[in-house]
Amino acid sequence: MPLLEVENLQTHFRTPDGVNRAVDGVSFHVNAGETLAIVGESGCGKSVTAMSILRLIPEPPGKIAGAIRLNGKNLLELSDREMRQIRGNDVSMIFQEPMTSLNPVLTVGRQIGETLRLHQGLSKQQAEERAVEMLNLVGIPEARRRVREYPHQLSGGMRQRVMIAIALACNPKLLIADEPTTALDVTIQAQILELMRDLKHRVGAAIVLITHDLGVVAEVAERVVVMYAGRKVEEAAIGPLFRTPRHPYTQGLLGSMPKLGSSLDGTETRLAEIPGLVPSLKKKLDGCVFASRCPHTTDLCRTVAPALEEKAPGHVAACHYAAREDLGADEMVAA
């Protein structure tokens, strides 16, 4: 049984000008100890998916439907009280902004200890010991001094390390990281990614990594879900996803990224563009969500929404024309 199973997740919001179908029928699973990345551009519903798992969506104006099963238990059926027991304990979350997600008037040690005292009933003394241990784990030097410092005394990278320490304090089974390195500089991002890779082996928590950066995905994830306009359009292990992307959106995304080192062999290529804009999520779409921007669109795409089909073992895509395992890319366009 997978650790987390999300089935037909729908998260909609009531807005003054209609219902926003931010997430509309997304299913995926995460196995214990595995790192799953959810990628997509802004507005694709990846962050809403993450927030929905922890039920951090205010209802109303939002509404969540479907099933989110953690070890077989549907989180959507739990009471608020039971849900509080899960958050920070079984499942914890890291946010993008390390500056605003820490409380500026509490010491770092207090903030790490708080969850421990709340969920595991540790004494003040024990909590501080564990806080020092956690800071050591996330690579903060002079941990014993640092536990008594306030967030403003730490740099951006240090704060993100503290966030990770807080998230890992209760030994969660699942860690949801929402754009954990987006606000950081590249050299600091490299440090945090290195830390995440290292912790993956040492702590063994499963990670759901939400990001827009395919480079970050390639560095830490094992499996990828690609989202577009509130749907999952493709899912695969990272190797096949980057080598043979099946959905035209994934192909477009990869093609539109300039490749580092492109100048070395002197092949100057023009970036591939995905023309047009993401469709409004306030209208119900007939057909494929990507039809308005896809280079291969046919009448079929505009009228019939493609089901997610397994195109190769473990590689699913929602496209009528995506190549199957034994078909080449040429046939795909011709089909």
């Binding site: 991002q189 440090q191 390639a218 980057f242 990869l254």
Partner: peptide, 25 residues
């Protein structure tokens, strides 16, 4: 050199020489 090495590349399993700088600016 460190800056170039820190950029994540969308190529899973790429064998790169990694230089991870210590500390902050």
């Amino acid at each position: 050199e460190a800056l170039l090495s820190a950029v994540p590349v969308p190529e899973p399993g790429a064998a790169r020489e990694r230089i991870i700088l210590k500390g902050d600016v």
